[in-house]
């Protein structure tokens, strides 16, 4: 069954898109990740214009982060003060990101930059995750559990000025790295159509030394607000948010995530992470392949004069 997308201006297979949303939702439930970094490339492979894929995926992430953020809020797992400082960066980052997106679009380079960003980030994250999970699996086989290196309480971050006290995170730290992290995630959300949890969570744990019980909640809070803002900014400056596509993905996504979360309970953490790493690297190499191999037709067309 085909359904016509009013903004992407093309028909897609209703069940296939629902299934894609469900599949990525399943994986995000299974691995406890957002899934934007898998969904956006998948939509592009399917033939959705990259600009529409990115903006629409930002809209979907709003839906998928709402329930998580709500649960963590009830458990007092959100540091709203630190979250607000992150958001200052997030707002700046997403405004810059959407502006950059529009500029790149008029130069005809947006598809390239989206692909390059994905290859770069998926490559790094996938490789790091793969190495880490392989070590964990070897350790488990060896039988001797190596104790986790306890992070020290101070690093270079703590020498920066503009220090603020965050009571819930039990932190006294400079606002600068928090704003910078927020801004980077904002730019990534606008250009790649991801929540950015894969950057933010490690940064919060390893750079800011936040306690893990507020990391997920606070990052979900930031993701929710930033992707909502990115959705509105893309809608106003690029007109690339396709509500019909977003609703299809949301429906598939929330159902898939439920099954994924249940299936994840029966699997070992390190094996799950190794599996996810392999998948991330597969998507990465597929995108890299498209960039490196000579296309069948060197020419492409775009509607509109380019300079908007």
């Amino acid at each position: 069954m085909q359904i016509y997308l009013p903004i992407a201006e093309l028909p897609v297979n209703f069940f296939l898109v629902l299934f894609m949303g469900g599949g990525v939702g399943f994986l995000s439930g299974l691995f406890g990740v957002g899934g934007g970094f898998l969904m956006t490339p998948l939509l592009i492979f399917y033939g959705i214009p990259p600009a529409v894929a990115v903006a629409t995926e930002a809209n979907q992430i709003v839906a998928s982060s709402v329930s998580g953020a709500f649960v963590h809020w009830q458990r007092r797992g959100i540091d709203f003060k630190l979250g607000s400082v992150l958001l200052v960066g997030g707002v700046i980052g997403s405004v810059i990101g959407v502006w950059l997106f529009k500029l790149l679009r008029s130069l005809g380079q947006v598809d390239l930059i989206i692909s390059l960003s994905y290859v770069l980030f998926l490559g790094i994250i996938g490789a790091l995750m793969f190495v880490e999970s392989m070590r964990a699996i070897m350790r488990a086989r060896g039988g001797n559990a190596v104790p986790l290196r306890r992070p020290g309480h101070h690093n270079w971050i703590h020498g920066l000025p503009f220090k603020m006290r965050f009571r819930r995170s039990k932190l006294y730290v400079s606002a600068i790295p928090i704003v910078v992290i927020g801004a980077i995630v904002g730019v990534l959300a606008a250009i790649m159509g991801v929540g950015g949890g894969f950057i933010m969570v490690p940064a919060m744990i390893y750079l800011l030394r936040m306690p893990t019980n507020v990391v997920i909640g606070t990052s979900l809070f930031q993701i929710l607000i930033v992707t909502a803002l990115v959705t509105i900014l893309h809608a106003t400056s690029n007109q690339t948010v396709d509500v019909v596509l977003a609703l299809l993905l949301m429906t598939g996504g929330v159902i898939g995530a439920q099954f994924g979360a249940r299936a994840g309970q029966n699997l070992k953490g390190e094996q799950l992470r190794a599996l996810l790493a392999v998948m991330v690297l597969l998507v990465c190499s597929r995108l890299a392949y498209n960039l490196i191999v000579q296309p069948d037709d060197l020419f492409s067309i775009a509607f509109g004069s380019g300079v908007e």
Binding site: V62, V66, A228, T231, L233, A246
Partner: peptide, 14 residues
Amino acid sequence: YGIVAVILAVLAGW
């Protein structure tokens, strides 16, 4: 349109 898209997403997630 953008605000409606966000509200729809929040409702769907909730």
